[in-house]
Design a protein around this nucleic acid. Structure first.
Lengths: 150, 150
DNA sequence: CCCATCCCTTACGTTAACGTCATGCATGTG
DNA sequence: CACATGCATGACGTTAACGTAAGGGATGGG
């Protein structure tokens, strides 16, 4: 019979590995999308005879990609964000540049936070008004039910 | 001479009005984009001899559109959101439906909040590590400056 | 009157992010 | 062995959100 849950067998103690189908199923995206992220340089899985093999790190990167997408960032932006994670600690100038990029990204995210907070607040206000309208409507309906017009 | 700041004259006490160029300049977008939003049913300005005339309400809607875009929503989603604002208080069923949509949208935004918070936290951690690396680098450079190799 | 400045519509072009299809290798199963 | 399953690589198709170009009316200044 075939192994159903994991298409890649793992030696005990070794890192858990995934085939492209595993990840696509787990995250509800298509294999095509995952390959596309690789084309764009967001993923670099190992290969075994042509087949892509993803480790825990690749999986984590994929999660970050999807989160970034949900936040409305373009893949190019997400790539920059991912690159912040694996900067080599040898080149001082690159470290400084990375730090600045990270801070800029944080600032941007905090602006988003505020805009979301504002939107939520406004939606809550609209919601309260609508609830009022509903209550008045229902009250009017009850009144009409007792002595209203035909 | 020509009126420079406002291309549409306003009677005292009347609502401030805008031409398409005014709004595009104010928000840093193209007239084409604004017309496109109208094509998609997100805006409904008045017309005066073919020309679009925007009031305060239209301007506010445009602001909401742009905010929604910054939050990563598609125009179709934003349209739904905008429709929440001008639901007529007469049809009870529509009120209830609007209320539900609004709540769903709020839930979605709150998920976004959490994801942003998580991302910011992780970026801060990376930032701290990078700062450490920089400090170590600088310290090593100073030491090397005193007695390091050529 | 001519020109510059807005505005309009129509229509085709472009980019991002995949979807879809064709084709082919490798492996495991009845 | 025939077949299904999973993965691979191309290559073309699609959708959203505009950009861009072409052609034309209205207005105001020099």
């Amino acid at each position: 019979m075939t192994v159903s849950t994991a298409s890649i067998s793992a030696a005990p103690g070794a890192e858990r590995l995934y085939a492209i189908g595993d990840l696509s199923a787990e995250f509800g995206i298509s294999p095509r999308a995952i390959r596309f992220y690789e084309d764009q340089g967001l993923l670099r899985p190992q290969r075994i005879g042509g087949n892509r093999i993803y480790g825990a790190g690749d999986r984590a990167r994929l999660q970050l990609i999807l989160r970034g997408k949900r936040l409305g960032f373009a893949l190019a932006d997400i790539k920059e964000l991912l690159d912040l994670y694996d900067v080599d600690a040898d080149h001082l100038e690159q470290l400084r540049a990375t730090l600045l990029k990270g801070r800029a990204r944080i600032a941007e995210l905090e602006r988003q936070q505020q805009e979301i907070a504002l939107t939520v607040k406004e939606l809550r206000e609209i919601g309260a008004e609508i609830e009022d309208s509903i209550r008045r409507k229902e009250a009017a309906a009850r009144t009409a039910g007792r002595k209203g017009p035909p």
